[in-house]
Every structure is written in structure tokens, then in C-alpha cells.
Amino acid sequence: MLSFVGRLAVALIVVTEVSYADFSIRDSRDGKIYKSMPSGNLNWFTDNLSFQKSVSFRDGAKNAYYRQADWSASCPAGTHVPDVVEWTAFAKDRFTGPRKLSNVKSFAGKTRGFYDLADPKHKIQGKDAAYFALKDTNGVRAMMLDVKRGNSKVVNLPPQAVVTVRCVSERDLYAEKFVDRKEMKMTDPRDNQKYKVELRDDKLWMLANLKYSLSSAKQCLLEDSVYCKKFGRFYTYNEAKKACPAGWHLPDDGEWRDFQKDRAKLNWDNLGRGGCKDWDGFCNSEVTGHYWSSTSIMKNTGRSWEFRRQAKSIDRTDQNVQKGLYVRCVTELN
């Protein structure tokens, strides 16, 4: 029986491959994988480039250094050596505030100094800083990260100087959220379930109820796994807060208010079905859908949103945290 009133007793081919799940970039020229971090519209290598064919010098620790003539050609396809503007924006984003010193040290890693190939002894220079290549400069200029003070600035180096290289790539904000932009589907990396998504006010919303971590038919409407496939699984409030994949989250009360403010755009057949799990019974599954928000106003309750399909109305209530409601995940495109 599917319709209830009241309660019943009874989840292109590219040269460079980018993985946004762990923010890593694979250089297909030699198979090396470089970790990276997002800042602004770029992903920044957090590992020094180590492409053997263009290395100019390696020190005793086998760190790779490059001369200016090889900087631009050294980065993997789809990435580039950052210029002064990009480095300045990155430094402003990452190397300011009370943690600037620790952030500079962390980003610089263990590499220190630069080498002058004109020096026959190849002694290290500038041992209290890390030096990184700069794109499109007159003369040999580099970005210096002072690991003693946490400062960063552009410096001039000798003509035969060699430095380390960090590459950057343009961010694909959709791919970082596991979304195929053509299909507008998100693939949950934890179980490969696919969910349709849509963009609303610079936020991506799932258009289907989450099914992740489905382990028992008791998590489903009527305790029948068929309905988890159809409607998604029920979550308690505490489960719901931890249910979304990395980079996504359970919407708070304000986000739900923004989502439903233009009711003419709502898909009532999609939202207003599946009911809820109400202790040892179930809500009306054919005309209502109940969803958790991350907001909690009163002790042992979570703010919920109920969508009524036939009436095209919405009820906003506070439900006991042990009840079973659905989860829709949301994320910002940044």
C-alpha cells in the first residue's frame, strides 16, 4: 500500500589528469602525482616539480632546480608557472594573519635556498628562504618565502640561478564537487551513486534524496529496500549532519528558505513524496516529503522542512532527533 493518511505501524582525453577528490594532478609524461591546494580560481602544487627531462640541477637531497629558460616548458600540460599577480594573490590568501609563519613553512616544505650554476662549487644560497619560479619576468626573478619571518616578496637572482618550480592549474569547480557539468549529475565518491543536481543562486543542490550508507531495510519506507531505491533512505538528525560527501553539507534553515522562496520553480512531485519515519510508523508517503536541516533551535530537536505535493504547501517544524527524515545535500561553487 503506497498511499497513507496519518500513520501506519509498520536510501575528451587530456594530457594531465586531475583528481579533485584529493586535489592531486598526475603528470602523464612520467606518471608523477603532485598534491595541490585551491586558492582563488587556481589549484597550486604543494609539491615541487620534479620532471627529470628539464631539471637543471639536483642537490644532495635530490631536490629538482630549474633555470629560467626551462621554467615555462617544465609544467605538465594544462598547468603553468604562476606569474607575479597570481603569486601575490596566493600570498594574500595564504600568508597573512596569525598563522602566516606556519603556513609559509608548510607550503615551502623542506626545500631551502637556490643555486648559482656560475658558482663551480654549487654552494647553496639564501638558506633561510624558499625560492620559486615566476612566469614572464625580466631578468631572473623569483618569489621568496622567508621561513624565519613568514614574509614573501619578489627578489632578483643571479643570471645563472636555478630555483624550484610550483605549477598551477585553473580550477574546475564542478569537477571538485564530483559533478559532470554536461549531465549535471554528482557521483558520490564513497559508493558511486549518481544524483541529479541543479544550480540555484550559486549553490548546487541535489535533486534526489541521499542513499549513502544503506545497510538495512529498516532505514527505508515500510522497511522495504525497494523504497530506498525509489525515495532514498531515512536518517536521524545526527546521522544527517554527517551524511553528505566531502565538499557538500546538510543545508541549514536559511539555505532551505532560499531554496523554496520561488515556489513556482519547485518540483513538487520530486520533493513531496516519500514521507518520513515517525517512531514505529510512517508519514504519508505519496503526498509529503520531510527533510532535515542542520539547524537546531530546541534541545533534542532539529529543524525540518515538509513539502506537500498536492497542496503545494510547506511546513517548517522542529522534529525529535530520533525521527527518520530525508537528506538533500548542497554545496557552494567556490
Rank of each mutant, 00 (worst) to 15 (best):
N238R: 12
W87K: 03
W268P: 13
Q160T: 13
V168G: 01
H80I: 14
H249L: 06
K100D: 03
I297G: 01
A21P: 14
G289E: 04
L157R: 01
S296Y: 01
S39T: 13
C228E: 00
E239N: 10
N138E: 11
V226F: 06
S213D: 13
G281R: 07
N284A: 14
H80L: 11
V165L: 14
D59E: 04
V162S: 01
V330A: 06
N192L: 11
R303W: 01
G232A: 11
F107T: 02
V15A: 14
N334P: 02
D119W: 00
D116Q: 02
L173V: 07
E17C: 09
V10W: 04
H249G: 03
R112N: 04
L173I: 07
D253A: 14
Q322P: 00
D280E: 08
K185F: 03
R67V: 08
G272N: 09
R257L: 13
D47Q: 13
Q193Y: 05
T96N: 09
P158V: 06
F234P: 02
S215K: 12
P120H: 01
W44D: 00
D83C: 11
S313Q: 12
I25F: 09
A246R: 13
F114A: 02
T236A: 03
Q322A: 10
C75S: 04
Y65S: 08
T164L: 03
S39K: 07
W268I: 12
C244M: 08
Y227A: 00
S225T: 10
A21L: 15
D83Y: 02
K177H: 08
N138C: 07
F95H: 06
L199D: 04
D22W: 05
Q219R: 05
G139E: 07
S294H: 01
S3T: 15
D269I: 09
V327C: 10
S215M: 09
H290L: 12
N63D: 07
